[in-house]
Design a binder for these strands. Structure first.
Length: 222
DNA sequence: TGTCGCGAACACATTGTTTC
DNA sequence: GAAACAATGTGTTCGCGACA
């Protein structure tokens, strides 16, 4: 099949002339033009592949965004608050907001090789056809930000990878509330209210833990 | 046993209002 | 004018029953 596709795609008669058939020439990689209206093999193949990749990207991001029904605690699906009525809710803990970009990059790379490759094609510079990593704005970091935004865009509850830690960090930096709102709209971070709710949850948990330790120490006569 | 569809519950983002 | 708080709309998640 690989040989057949190559032969079709690279055959000189599969390419429409830009002057004689401009509409056919423009149909290459088109995401919308009906395939049965494309008479030449090369643009038809590229149009078909474009839609195939687009649909698959939609499917893969959706899969990453969905919450797994059962299994281990999911860092991606953590809640800032809970009132106890919902079962199996993972409420935020301090460990959830500790992360490194390197860890997240490795996580995304292992979890979805296709999406990592796809975003690398968008973000990474190349030299002689090979991907190179720049010192300033290294593309894996940008890929992590993009994939995290894609996931949050598809599911607002799947914000634990980067959105929630970033929201808390913005609060800690005393970022202006307008900055928080813009970052939230871009899908980079959770909203100001969610970040505050998460911090309240975290500090309440720590306070209760401290009170318990003090009571235990008093009981032991220390 | 797994999938689908539905309605209710829930957590969240957004926007408006109040307070300092 | 900015931050804090409250109200409201949105859309995901959950639980359940029906069905294959």
């Amino acid at each position: 099949m690989a040989d057949v596709i190559e032969l079709f795609y690279n055959h000189h008669k599969s390419r429409p002339s830009k002057k004689k058939a401009p509409d056919q020439f423009a149909a290459a990689f088109s995401p919308t033009k009906p395939l049965h209206e494309i008479r030449y093999a090369r643009p038809c193949l590229s149009g078909w592949a474009t839609r195939l990749v687009g649909d698959h990207a939609y499917f893969r991001v959706g899969k990453m965004a969905r919450k797994k029904r059962a299994g281990e605690r999911s860092r991606r699906h953590i809640r800032a608050t809970k009132n106890g009525r919902a079962k199996n809710t993972n409420v935020v803990e301090w460990e959830d907001v500790e992360f490194t970009m390197e860890d997240l990059a490795n996580l995304y790379k292992e979890e979805d090789e296709f999406l990592w490759y796809f975003t690398e094609c968008c973000a990474a510079p190349r030299k002689k056809g090979k991907v190179v990593v720049k010192k300033t704005r290294p593309h894996p970091v940008i890929q992590v930000g993009a994939i995290s935004s894609f996931i949050t865009s598809r599911n607002q509850y799947a914000s634990g990878d980067l959105g929630l830690p970033l929201g808390i960090w913005l609060f800690a930096c005393q970022a202006h509330v307008d900055v928080e709102r813009v970052f939230c709209r871009f899908g980079y971070s959770v909203s100001d209210s969610t970040a505050r709710a998460a911090l309240n949850t975290l500090t309440d948990a720590s306070l209760n833990d401290l009170k318990k330790q003090v009571r235990d120490a008093i009981d032991r006569g220390e």
